[in-house]
Measured scan of single mutants.
Amino acid sequence: RPMNAFMVWARIHRPALAKANPAANNAEISVQLGLEWNKLSEEQKKPYYDEAQKIKE
């Protein structure tokens, strides 16, 4: 299954978030990633939607 825009973004940002929160488990990191993603504007998300579309094609 191809990655969606959030997954493209999260793949880039997960390592830094995990390093900054070494005690957090994957579920907690995923929740935090979701919160951070939701704070982004549509303009900030656009490159990730574009990349996800390329992956689908």
Rank of each mutant, 00 (worst) to 15 (best):
K39W: 03
A10R: 03
A20M: 11
K45M: 03
N21K: 05
E57G: 10
V31E: 11
R11Q: 14
K46H: 06
N38Q: 11
S41P: 06
W37G: 00
D50P: 02
S30H: 13
L17R: 03
M7V: 08
E42W: 15
E36P: 01
A27W: 15
N38Y: 08
M3H: 10
L35Q: 11
Y48S: 01
S30E: 14
L35H: 10
L33P: 01
P22Y: 03
V8H: 05
K39N: 08
G34Y: 15
N21G: 02
K39H: 04
I12W: 07
E43M: 11
K19T: 09
R14V: 04
S30M: 14
K56V: 09
L17D: 02
E42P: 14
Q32W: 14
F6V: 01
K19M: 11
R11W: 11
M7A: 12
K54T: 09
F6D: 00
P47T: 08
A24I: 06
A20Q: 14
L35R: 12
A52I: 08
L33A: 02
S30C: 12
A18C: 06
P15I: 12
Q53R: 10
N26I: 10
E51K: 10
A5G: 09
G34R: 15
K46L: 08
E43W: 04
S30N: 14
N21H: 13
A20P: 02
N21Y: 13
K39R: 09
E42M: 14
Y49M: 09
V8S: 04
P22N: 04
S41F: 02
E57D: 12
A16Y: 12
P2S: 07
P22V: 03
E51N: 03
A52R: 02
D50E: 10
V8Q: 03
L33I: 03
I29A: 01
D50F: 08
K56S: 13
A27D: 13
P22C: 03
M3I: 15
A23W: 15
I29P: 00
Q32L: 15
Y48L: 00
E36Q: 10
K56M: 15
A18Q: 13
A5Q: 01
L40A: 01
E51C: 11
A23K: 13
E57N: 11
L40F: 03
E28N: 03
R14I: 05
E36K: 07
G34W: 13
A52E: 05
R1D: 11
H13D: 00
K39L: 10
A10S: 10
H13Y: 12
A24Q: 05
N25E: 05
D50S: 07
K54D: 06
R14E: 06
P15C: 07
N4S: 13
Y48V: 01
L33E: 01
K56N: 15
E43N: 09
N38P: 01
K45H: 01
E42T: 13
V8E: 04
W9N: 00
K45P: 01
K54S: 09
A18M: 15
N4Y: 07
M3T: 11
S41N: 11
A20H: 07
W9L: 00
K56I: 14
I55K: 04
S30I: 14
I55D: 08
A10G: 02
R14Y: 13
A24K: 12
M7R: 09
N26K: 12
Q53C: 05
Q44T: 04
N21P: 01
N25M: 04
P2G: 09
K54C: 05
V31Q: 13
P22H: 04
E43G: 08
S30R: 13
